[in-house]
Nucleic acid binder design. Structure first.
Lengths: 248, 248
DNA sequence: CAAATAGTGTCTTTAAGACACTATGCC
DNA sequence: GGCATAGTGTCTTAAAGACACTATTTG
């Protein structure tokens, strides 16, 4: 960093700084649909994209936010009241033209949260849960449509080989519920037997007593063993694992 | 973005802006070792971390760089003279404390380049290729050690299921050369037969005449079909492919 | 022909997919 | 018992791994 060539301004840092924001793509599943939380931008004409739908986010507050991650957590908490969701950095988007107010860069996170008990509490006058397909067909403020497309692509890609959908469910949940969540996110049906073998072999679930459904047999409830990280299913070029230790 | 609550500063943008930089982790393979390009920071006492090793990078020039990606390409060109390498965004690191000059955020890219013809042309008084293991054990400026660790982790993870190592070789290359590159990056030997089946089945290589080696039988040379993207090898939850079209 | 390296064939193993089957709870 | 849903078993298939074999080039 900071290879400044003009001696006059060396380490003076007097050049123009871009605007810096953090945006969060918050996913959940409500009524068997993958949804994303969007906010209405203020109608004030002095703000860019007045009234448009946008991802929740905003400027970094250098006095409040210790880090980018903390800033994303703060914004997530402000919108959903949730404290410890699955939160992962998606990437950053920055250019001279994405914000009419000047050169700007945004750091984007994506979060997976269980469906809120009361949908209306999170969906208010200024924010709402939109079905992802609908959201993708909507013109969002700034380059947020492109960012949302990137987030959906990343989510779908990772769902193919990780336990991410488990973070979209309230605990405890059953394997059939988890399977339906996978199917909703990926948009295709999955085989029950293969699905169960895979989930149980991956060792990321802890049993938690039976749960009765609306009809039929009741099912085993599960919790996520480690909410800090998602499980990764076996893939190509077997990465030399084997049982941690052989006896003696 | 920009949900500003204090009416007084609404869209005034008068709050403090963080420093914004772009850093690039440039990998190559030289003499059967995975290397990363590092630069010496200036000895000027007014600069942070004088004399330390650091990742190449620097402040965004809002007058010159159209986007983050362009900025990364510019910095890569300045250091290596290369124009069209494999370049992918790694993520961003930002906090109040990572730079003594103030709240700063850096956008990090990682690049894969073929070994330079003349190593000394890129390794100069201010920059040098360091073996990755050595670099990881070195204290780098800022949080660059952490960033480098993240880049190596991402590279190794993706090498398990993509054709990324092909971008570390000058074209045309042979399958045995490619296999050695995989082995160098992953630090473990691979089976020849399985390796070749996989590479050829993935359809990302184009034949380009035989190449004679130092000894023994000569081998088929290959080029990357599409330098814009890496091939992804088959993974879990078979993503419904099948041959593009059945006859008739 | 020997040494060295490139390339192939065959069998095993792992995990996914298809699909039929059994088990349990509620009316 | 009948329906609905949970959960299991068995066979097939795709692709990785082990490893022995053949092929081509140089000296």
């Amino acid at each position: 960093m900071a290879t400044i060539k003009t001696p006059a301004r060396a380490s003076a840092l007097h050049f123009e700084r871009p605007l810096v924001t953090v945006d969060v793509v918050i996913f959940t599943v409500i009524e068997q649909q993958l949804k994303v939380l969007l906010v209405h931008r203020p109608e004030t004409a002095s703000d860019p994209f007045p009234g448009s739908l946008a991802l929740p986010g905003g400027f970094i507050d250098v006095a409040v936010d210790a880090s980018l991650h903390d800033c994303a957590l703060r914004k997530l908490g402000e919108k959903t009241g949730l404290e410890a969701p699955y939160l992962e950095q998606l990437g950053s988007w920055g250019s001279a033209t994405r914000d009419p107010r000047g050169w700007s860069a945004t750091h984007v996170y994506f979060a997976l949260v269980p469906a809120p008990e009361d949908t209306d509490a999170t969906a208010s006058a200024t924010s709402q849960w939109l079905e992802v397909g609908t959201a993708l067909r909507t013109h969002l403020a700034f380059d947020h449509s492109e960012i949302l497309a990137g987030a959906v692509e990343r989510l779908r890609a990772k769902v193919e080989y990780t336990s991410l959908p488990a973070f979209l469910l309230p605990e405890p949940f059953t394997l059939p519920q988890l399977q339906r969540t996978y199917e909703v996110v990926l948009g295709r049906p999955m085989d029950k037997s293969a699905f169960r073998k895979r989930m149980l072999d991956a060792q990321f679930l802890a049993e938690e007593g039976a749960i009765a459904g609306d009809a039929g047999r009741s099912a085993m409830g599960y919790r996520i063993r480690d909410r800090e990280r998602a499980a990764v299913f076996p893939r190509t070029f077997r990465s030399v694992e084997g049982p941690s230790l052989a006896s003696s």
